[in-house]
């Protein structure tokens, strides 16, 4: 499915990444799962930003999803969570464009202490809606040409992004940003048989 789920902007501080702005499109998830999904998406975005070097791009596959991350040299970072079928080139171009706009509007001295409530930058929802159709990116052709796709680091799971000795299971349990409900959800997600309905 060609689909965007979440778009967020972080400041990668020395200790941890700080969420500055985010938006979600979770209509395709079932109603009572949306809260958990949003928490996990924010958790995954933050985790990956913290493990991405400045001036680096990564695209991390997690099952059917892709987390596209770009941390600029000045530590401003953008994350786009999309379905794995969404074109990677367009995803990274979009992140670049949004970070450019963000840094033009919000001065760098406010990044370190800013938060969702204090920062006045409200165009993320409109972008998330517009770029659901990647053809919209045709207008960004010039930018796309500047993007060197071979420099994007590809990872097959979130685990592959973690540092030596880190375990995703432990991080989920310890996370202060995940609710009890979400942690319970994580534990109950187990082996599944998706295929066959026998009858």
């Amino acid at each position: 499915m060609v689909k965007l789920f979440a778009l967020s902007i972080f400041y990668k501080g020395s200790a941890e990444a700080r969420l500055l702005k985010s938006t979600y499109d979770l209509q395709s998830f079932s109603f009572f799962q949306r809260g958990t999904v949003q928490e996990f998406m924010t958790f995954a975005s933050k985790t990956i930003v913290e493990r991405t070097q400045p001036a680096m791009r990564q695209s991390v596959k997690q099952e059917a999803y892709m987390c596209h991350v770009y941390v600029r040299a000045d530590n401003l970072a953008g994350v786009l969570i999309a379905d794995h079928e969404y074109p990677q080139r367009v995803a990274h171009t979009l992140i670049t464009k949004i970070l450019d706009e963000f840094s033009a509007k919000i001065s760098a001295d406010r990044w370190e202490t800013g938060s969702d409530g204090t920062i006045d930058f409200n165009t993320l929802p409109a972008y998330l809606a517009k770029y659901q159709d990647p053809k919209e990116a045709d207008a960004l052709t010039k930018m796309q040409n500047d993007l060197d796709e071979t420099k994007i680091i590809l990872k097959n799971t979130i685990e592959a992004v973690l540092e030596r000795g880190e375990k995703l299971d432990d991080m989920v349990i310890k996370s202060e940003n995940l609710s009890m409900q979400s942690k319970a959800f994580y534990k109950t997600a187990k082996k599944t048989n998706s295929c066959c309905n026998f009858s």
Binding site: S30, F31, F32, Q33, Q181, A184, F185, T188, A189
Partner: peptide, 28 residues
């Protein structure tokens, strides 16, 4: 409009039947 089973581990001593905005959920 929708029904789903909500993954939960413990009986939290309240009803497992959740109803909001025409959505029905049942705790697992």
């Amino acid at each position: 409009s929708t029904f789903e089973i909500i993954p939960t581990i413990l009986n939290r001593n309240k009803t497992p039947v959740v109803h909001a905005e025409h959505h029905l959920g049942l705790e697992s």
